[in-house]
Nucleic acid binder design. Sequence first.
DNA 1: TTGTAAGCGTTATCAC
DNA 2: GTGATAACGCTTACAA
Lengths: 344, 344
Amino acid sequence: MKKKPVKLADVARFSGVSTATVSRALSLPHKVKPETLERIQRVIKKLGYVPHGAARALATRRTHTIGAVIPTLDNAIFANTTHALQKTLDEAGYTLLLGCHEFNPKVEARIARKLIERGVDGLVLFGTDHENELWELIERVQIPYVLTWALDRTGRRPCVGFDSREAGVRVAQYLMDLGHRRFAMIAGITATNERHRERVRGVREALAARGIALPPSRIIEKPFSPTAGREAMQEILRQRVRSTAVICGNDVLAIGAIAECHAQGLNVPADISVTGFDDMEFASMVTPALTTVHFPAAELGQYAAEHLLARLSGRKVPHQQQLPVELIVRASSAAPREVLAEVG
Amino acid sequence: MKKKPVKLADVARFSGVSTATVSRALSLPHKVKPETLERIQRVIKKLGYVPHGAARALATRRTHTIGAVIPTLDNAIFANTTHALQKTLDEAGYTLLLGCHEFNPKVEARIARKLIERGVDGLVLFGTDHENELWELIERVQIPYVLTWALDRTGRRPCVGFDSREAGVRVAQYLMDLGHRRFAMIAGITATNERHRERVRGVREALAARGIALPPSRIIEKPFSPTAGREAMQEILRQRVRSTAVICGNDVLAIGAIAECHAQGLNVPADISVTGFDDMEFASMVTPALTTVHFPAAELGQYAAEHLLARLSGRKVPHQQQLPVELIVRASSAAPREVLAEVG
DNA sequence: TTGTAAGCGTTATCAC
DNA sequence: GTGATAACGCTTACAA
């Protein structure tokens, strides 16, 4: 036997006013006579009235809700971005609807549609690679959105992100400056992931610019897991010509790669250099710390939220926003022994 | 000049049927004549009709939405739980509304209320410690909820979680069995966090049972960050009587603690043993691996979701559900040198 | 400053 | 199988 929920009309009745006045008391308190307002608020408290969001959304055509479809929460870097996203939205009175696609574009499209049907006022997507079907839906329903992590090279879509190619160039140049000449790369899956495509491209182009090749056999694509990183490193260590520097598509792969080196009795970086992208703050505190190109994930979440919030409230914002990345040099990279030998 | 969104009535008009039939075509397709159904579906596709969730929610009094208020996404363990939660809900056709309270109970209450106003069909909370105000709200609106991570000792509230006290007992006994007698603990903030209170209690009780005291000076409470872990370890290493075993309230604190040991030239575990709770899979791959009591976070998320989904669809489920934790022994714990000396 | 009443876009209960 | 039509709970002109 559950009692019916209290509704706005009940509050109105008990306060001896109309529903319109109660509604105003809630959303435009300054347009209500102070005494009336106070009376209404007392009744609201006494009755324990809780506004009905769906009804309000139906009437106002606004849900104060933002949807985000992220790759996964199992990677700290995306979790960090999402955390900042949620926090910024919350402070602005918005609620986050969250979905994870686990690197499957079809799933992403499905979830995005679901969020749109739930009525989100805006949408946050990760990267620029998306199903056509999703683009069409977004276009059709005219929902404000922002792409994150990546930059849209066409310049047509609103985004706040990083230049992944540039990041690739940075590590490659750094390692070449240390004297490395034989490279291998443990890349993430690049097919539907422009961020990792660009990282590889950056590395490859920077190497090529100094006459160093990175043949396909030296680029091993793996899903994002430490185990996959280990496997890839095994493959690399099996190759006849040994690489002196291994660049990993992200921190997770790098951790696995280092673990495999250790398992084979190799010293990092004395015997082989391992670098990566993203971050590994925690692990770096206690291990041959990883040199990485660091992407400030939390800042990204905050800026992405602010971008969307600004547009929702009619403010002007730069269509494209690029966030700087930072090369953090730690103990995991070094000159290869052979180079040191030459110099010495 | 934005064109008005397509609504169900438009689909009805173009298909030459009533809105009732279109509605049925959407939710009870088998109750519609196949030809009619097909015609409607064609029109839906052609018009690009997207159902209006708020209107549907208003009419059905169901949003197919679940709210979760978690501590933070910046700790991998909660991110993992949330990931599994989202995934399980998604598979059942539900959407996750997410909020983070960052260990502030007032914020938790505020966000929970917001989610309830948005119309979530159910609520997932972390732990058993909550503001009275929140309990009253939950009671008043009669919303199905489930507590996670912790177990409710009163047995009155639905929950799926772990026995944190037991976890504390496990590490303590393990370390005592190794020969340790002088302990210190780097605890998390316990005031509004029964999980960490219970971990401390378990350790303390297990030690007491074997006549070992853990005086307040040996329990250092810190917020959950590696930096705080380092600071706490500094304090501990400054104490006149040196502890041989340091138990950390979670993995994040433990990482910091180990880092500080290394910084001071101490070998872990030869010079001092450092253990923890939760997990540290990645770091463990490349560092003096942490012995921990492992809480299967992803499983928890899945079970919590299933619990709630079951109740929402009227199925019976156990009111309380305890998930097993596992002591994972790795290289970070060991007999203290003095003990080895005695034995040797 | 407050009240009246017409939506908002669905679903659901009846008839037919 | 299908169609009218009354909810669902709130907002917002427009009046008073």
